Computed example of a mutant assay.
Amino acid sequence: METFPYTPSQQPLYDGGCACGALRFRAKGEPKRVGICHCMTCRRIHGSAFGSYAIYERDDIEWSGDTRAWKSSPLGRRHFCPACGSVAYMEYGDGSELDIPLGSFDRTGIFEPTYELWCCHREPWLPAGVRTEFDKDRT
């Protein structure tokens, strides 16, 4: 498992990586926001009813290891580990923000989503009204 050099900082550091350990990251500080996405692409790439993400500025994430990417929408690129296929992150538009899957962090329970996207595709058995909801993307 790759480790990162210790850098004294006032910001908390959050480590994570892919399932096989070939790809590692360190997130500096708190994310800009944390959300859940029910879009059909997130459902399919995670093989689950939704994806959940911590959104960071690109400069707040350090990476170790390689990724491969595919263009998942006109504005989106999804990066994954070429060894195990784990989702590494998503970037949209100019790529200044990275959406890091909550399940890729080493610790659990560190971030709680405050909103949900693409609720038009949410499974009917999931509770509604728990956090801010958007029928499609955030406005």
Rank of each mutant, 00 (worst) to 15 (best):
L102S: 06
G21Y: 07
I55C: 08
L23C: 04
P82I: 04
M90W: 15
D60C: 12
S73F: 08
Y89V: 04
L126W: 07
R77G: 06
G35A: 11
Y56T: 08
C20W: 02
T67D: 05
C20D: 10
E116P: 11
Y92D: 15
G35H: 08
Y14I: 08
C20I: 07
Y6I: 10
C39G: 09
C84M: 01
A88R: 01
A83Y: 11
C119F: 06
C119Q: 07
G76V: 04
I61V: 02
A128C: 10
Y56P: 07
R58K: 07
T41Y: 13
S86V: 06
E91C: 09
W118Q: 10
S73L: 00
R33P: 12
K136D: 15
G103V: 01
P127V: 02
Y92V: 14
G109Y: 03
E91M: 11
I110S: 15
G51R: 06
P101M: 00
A54C: 05
C81Y: 07
R68M: 10
D137H: 01
Y89S: 00
H121M: 04
A19Y: 14
T41M: 12
D106R: 06
L75T: 15
F4C: 03
D15Y: 03
T108R: 11
L98F: 12
C120L: 11
W118E: 11
P12K: 02
S9D: 12
C84Q: 00
S104Q: 08
D137Q: 04
Q10P: 13
D66P: 12
T41G: 08
G17S: 05
Y92Q: 14
P113N: 03
E116V: 01
T108L: 13
A22E: 12
P124H: 10
R77W: 09
T108G: 15
A83V: 15
M40R: 15
A19I: 08
E116H: 06
S96D: 11
R44P: 12
I100W: 07
R33V: 14
D60P: 09
M90P: 13
E2Q: 14
F111S: 09
D60M: 14
D99G: 09
P124M: 09
G35E: 05
A19W: 12
G103S: 04
G21E: 02
T3E: 11
G85K: 06
S52E: 05
F134T: 03
E2D: 09
M90N: 14
A22G: 12
W118S: 06
